[in-house]
Design a protein around this nucleic acid. Structure first.
Lengths: 215, 215
DNA sequence: ACAAAAGTGTTAAACATACACCCATGT
DNA sequence: ACATGGGTGTATGTTTAACACTTTTGT
């Protein structure tokens, strides 16, 4: 029995919707193993920072944003998940609005979640797990707003659901549900300069709790 | 920035129903800090074992059982959660049938979840979190069977829900729901030597998936 | 005969689903 | 005038929630 300490890292799955697709942020690995492959952004935790602080730090380093949806996902710790040494990784997942983000140059880029290339280490299975959790979150909480700017149309919101679940929803039933649950409030403004009927802009209703069964 | 490795432990929240109450297994701390206080069973991970293997090992050490419901709960890593040094703990929660367990002597004992004494370290908040997750699991999966023996009556099953949620359910509606979802099958046997009408014994229906919306 | 838990149906309200047309704007 | 997406209502089936009495056994 060797009770030697393993290394501990934090990896962050950063989801956004870009070009109408669910995408995630990866960095290109600079060294072996998996040199050149895309990998989840991550890093070792500082001995004095909390796990969530580490996740926030990594998120900010790659995207410049801090005040976004972020939650712990799962801790992966198979002895051989890193071929070099024992590394336990505490994963977090984040949802960002693509317009708020400036991807910091160092080989970070967006990859579509469905149809992504192979990722380094066990990051593929981490992403699969994160994607399941993301779907669950949209079903049962108001997390969908995190993909959107402060004001959005009903169609914008519906598109978030359609993108994440990769299926369509009935417009009338969708709107009825959102209004019934009182998830949004009318901002009193409408979209402008659109070559069709202007749409009402909504904002999230702050009085609604985090947990609400939506679908 | 010090990238020194923290210690990593696994703690296990072991739930059972005993004397009609939801209880959890704690061990008494033998050393400072928190000497004498009840604490979650746990231990350092061996450098070669997976996190789940470590959790299974700890579970077996304390209860003698291995083949039970066990899932990762959350990873707690605040820098000051252990006053001595940086310790990150990956928590797991387990559900056991009290009759299958022999609590191994070394100061391990059952404590009621509602109405428990103060626990060592941040274990109180870990237990609160585990209790929320337990309720969620019973609502949305078939985890309730894990509290019960292989055969049980509808009333036994209903009592599990009533104990965990600390409220009562309507007997007719409860039975209709369970039967509708096809969660159980009739074993063809009935309770014996009960001083009232014998009850049908059921077993879990193996064809039912893990995820089912129950309540 | 009594005590104790098992077992069973109906009704009303809420919710989910499927479905098609008119509206307001820019070009 | 046309193209584009915005916006709305109804009917049907399903699910939930509330509610009380009879049955079977042991003592």
């Amino acid at each position: 029995m060797a009770f030697e300490d393993p290394a501990v890292t934090v990896d962050v799955i950063i989801f956004t919707i870009k070009d109408g697709r669910l995408q995630l942020l990866c960095v290109q690995r600079e060294n072996e193993p998996f040199k050149g492959d895309p990998a989840l952004p991550g890093g070792f935790i500082d001995i004095n920072e909390s796990l969530e602080t580490a996740a926030t730090r990594i998120l900010e380093e790659k995207t410049g944003v801090t005040d976004v949806y972020l939650e712990q996902l799962y801790t992966f710790g198979d002895p051989d998940r890193d071929p070099r040494k024992r590394v336990i990784t505490v994963s977090y997942f984040a949802i960002v609005n693509h317009d708020d983000v400036t991807v910091s140059g160092d080989d970070a880029d967006w990859y579509p979640v469905r149809d992504r290339p192979d990722l380094a280490f066990d990051h593929d299975s981490i992403v699969s797990y994160a994607n399941q959790r993301l779907q669950w979150k949209l079903e049962y909480t108001t997390a969908a707003f995190s993909f959107l700017p402060e004001q959005f149309t009903m169609s914008d919101l519906q598109k978030v659901y359609e993108t994440v679940f990769d299926r369509s929803f009935d417009k009338r039933n969708f709107r009825r549900k959102i209004k019934k649950l009182d998830l949004v409030e009318d901002t009193g403004t409408k979209t402008e300069n659109v070559s069709h009927r202007p749409a009402t802009l909504y904002r999230p209703n702050k009085d609604v709790g985090e947990i609400v069964e939506i679908l």
